[in-house]
Amino acid sequence: MAPFGPWADLHTELLCSIADGLSLKHYTSIRGACPAWRSALAPPFPSLLVIADGRRASSLPFLMQGSLHVSTLKKCSFFLGSSNGCFAVASEWLGIFLLNPLTGEEIKLLRMNNCGKVVPKVVFAPNPRPDNYTVVALCDGNKIGYTKTRDMKWFISDIAMNRDQLADLAYDIDGGKVYCLTECGDVHVLHIPHGRRRKPIVEPLLAADRTPGVPFDPALVFTSPYHIASKLTRSKQIFVCNGSLYQVWRNTTGTIGWRLPAGGQFSMSEDEIFVLRYDPGRQPCWDVVQDLGGYSVFIGKNNPAVVRAEGLSWVQANCVYWIDERWRDVPMVFDMVTRTSTPFVLPANNVQAPRCRASCWYFFSDNITSTDRRKHHISGDVAAKTSQI
């Protein structure tokens, strides 16, 4: 401890007492002062972004350790995504911009005048800066918008689909690509341009096996009976875990069922979730898995974050954490073992304001699976405080 001086030996309880109530910016700063302080203070994630009084809000409360102070948000702002500590925000006055809530820095993007009005989700590369950013937007049903530093325009790519619609995007940080998922489970890959190439390339995941102009056939890629379920579950999301690609399907229409060709009945209860893994070495290449190998995934408008549950006191292993957009955006957790979804109850002292709606999960880093788990230990008494901004 000598190189850091006597402050490194500050008693843990006293250090926690001092840190309690600090702004998030100052909290993260003192965690980085020395190894002893970093070990004593829990990292402030994962967290829930919540909005007061509906989706259009002039205030932005958070459920997390400490508080964030953002004075630049205007009334009628919409949150379109979060990734690596930043938010994508849409404003009636500013269009779409990226916001770092720790510093207040904004990256204003060009308005998307030629891709329709509906932009439900935005993903972007880590650590965006005004002089270095990459942004991808899901827009208008079957279009992908892409822009990069100094492009001075949005590149709009139409994805040819036979009465299908895009449902989700996921930015693969390690692979340098964006996976685009449709409502029927078809996957397209947007390859991020490098070098002098500015325009992105979008192609089907199984481009070599696809005949141009032939509609997507779920029976060719999903094992039975999930090729039928792919058409009946419109809530779908995609994520990457340890180099493998996964889909999350959720039934939002009440209990559904159908007879199997070989006999018997297959059914899905409301809010039941299936997780499918992509295996290019088999045919069909997508099949349901029963667990995530001890990991859990947080999905929603945020770029999906995969967490190793071991050592985290309030994160269950092999679970899907999601937000129920039908009932005041309640945070939920689906246990892959019990096959049930239940409301996600935050730890003691973490109270969500009754008028607040969860918008998305907030993480300081999306690349959680490859980091040292000891740095992400969250004790049970960490206080996640709701603060008005």
Rank of each mutant, 00 (worst) to 15 (best):
L99M: 06
F78H: 10
F79Y: 11
P128C: 04
S235P: 00
C241R: 15
S29V: 05
G300D: 12
T149V: 11
P284Y: 08
R197L: 09
D335P: 03
K148W: 04
T28H: 03
F79L: 02
F4P: 00
N318Y: 13
T340D: 05
P215S: 01
D372W: 05
I378Q: 11
F87W: 01
A207E: 11
D381N: 08
G175S: 09
I159G: 06
I192K: 12
S82H: 02
R357G: 10
R163W: 14
G81C: 01
L10E: 10
T338A: 12
P331T: 10
C241W: 03
P101S: 02
A57Y: 14
T340L: 15
V118Q: 07
M268F: 13
K117N: 12
K25A: 13
S91Q: 05
T342H: 06
V333G: 02
P126N: 12
N251Y: 02
I107H: 14
F239S: 02
R163E: 12
V135F: 08
S58P: 01
P128M: 07
T252K: 02
G116S: 09
G176L: 03
D174K: 11
E106T: 10
R339M: 07
R163V: 06
M64A: 13
K301Q: 06
S82D: 07
R374Q: 10
R196P: 02
F216R: 01
R355I: 04
A383M: 09
T28V: 13
R38D: 01
I18S: 05
A170C: 15
D9P: 00
S359L: 11
E272D: 12
N84G: 13
T103Y: 05
A40G: 01
S230V: 01
G264N: 04
V345L: 10
C115E: 00
L10M: 15
G5H: 03
N303K: 05
E106I: 07
G21M: 06
P44T: 09
K143H: 10
N302V: 06
P126F: 13
R374V: 00
T28P: 00
R374F: 15
M268R: 14
D324E: 15
V345M: 12
L110S: 14
Y133T: 00
C360E: 09
P120E: 11
T386I: 03
R197K: 14
G264M: 04
P130W: 07
P261H: 14
S59R: 07
V202F: 05
G66R: 09
P347G: 03
V221R: 08
L206Q: 12
S387W: 07
D186L: 04
L102N: 08
A57E: 11
G254D: 06
R234M: 09
G243L: 05
T223H: 15
D271E: 12
H11Y: 08
W327D: 06
P343E: 13
D271I: 03
F79A: 02
V337W: 13
F274M: 15
E183T: 08
T340C: 14
F239K: 03
I173C: 11
L10W: 11
G243R: 01
A90D: 06
